[in-house]
Amino acid sequence: MASACYVYGIQSVECSPPSGLAGFAGSPVIAIRCRALIAAASLVDAKGVGPTPENLLLHEEVVEALQLAGPLLPARFGTVLPSDEAVVEALAERQAALLFALSRVGDRVELGLSVLRNPPGSDGEDSSVDRGATSFGDSTQMGVGARYLRAKLVAHRREASLRREAAALAQGIDGVLRRHAIESCYTVLPTPRLAMRAAYLVAPRQLGEFHKAFDELRVVHRDHRFLLSGPWPPYSFVSPPSALLQGEPVEKGASLLAAAASKLLWP
């Protein structure tokens, strides 16, 4: 059976996987060293590991066991390299960035937040959403094409209105919770009902205050449902924040593409 290295996480050389820690198929978790870093890994079939609930839980259990030994950069589920030489090479290439990430994460943990809006229809529909559609005139006189675009316009306005509300809510919630965290990142309205999803990098000593602030937010926002999960290994804070992650350049690029394509069709 061809084998490969399944990587659970990266730590400094001062740490070592707890003795007896077993990974997939009972294979022992070992430390693969490269200068100041180790990768905690075990041998798996070269085909990798399937994303079953059991495998996901085992990955998480190993990562949490490693975290007890010291600061850890958790690897995403399914990180497989062909050999231990490939692991060493990967560590060598990213040594400085990984060391920086380790110092940034330290003993901090991640908390995940999801905020749910009330079910559709339970809050008043925004009447301004339909106002723009009146520029189409009498809907009974409209052709099939105009009716199609009118429906799209109404849907577009409704989504924009929802997004504005969710962005204001997310900004307010993040403003409160961020005071009790080292870093945070959030997305607004990932689904029409999910107002926001956020991750917080929190020092262990901050957990009590963070939970208190979370409970107070639930009282203030009784019209929303809140779910806080964790503490988890800091999966969302392994990579450094990047200017590339900000939406503006992407949106700007998309608008330019749309304008160019539009000119081709309707010069």
Binding site: L116, R193, F214, R218, R225, L227, L228, S229, P231, W232
Partner: peptide, 18 residues
């Protein structure tokens, strides 16, 4: 490791699965 409106867990699950 969960805290909050746990009676709405199914709703959260449905949204997160999307």
């Amino acid at each position: 490791p969960l805290r909050g409106d746990l009676e709405a867990l199914c709703d959260f699950g449905r949204e997160l699965s999307q």
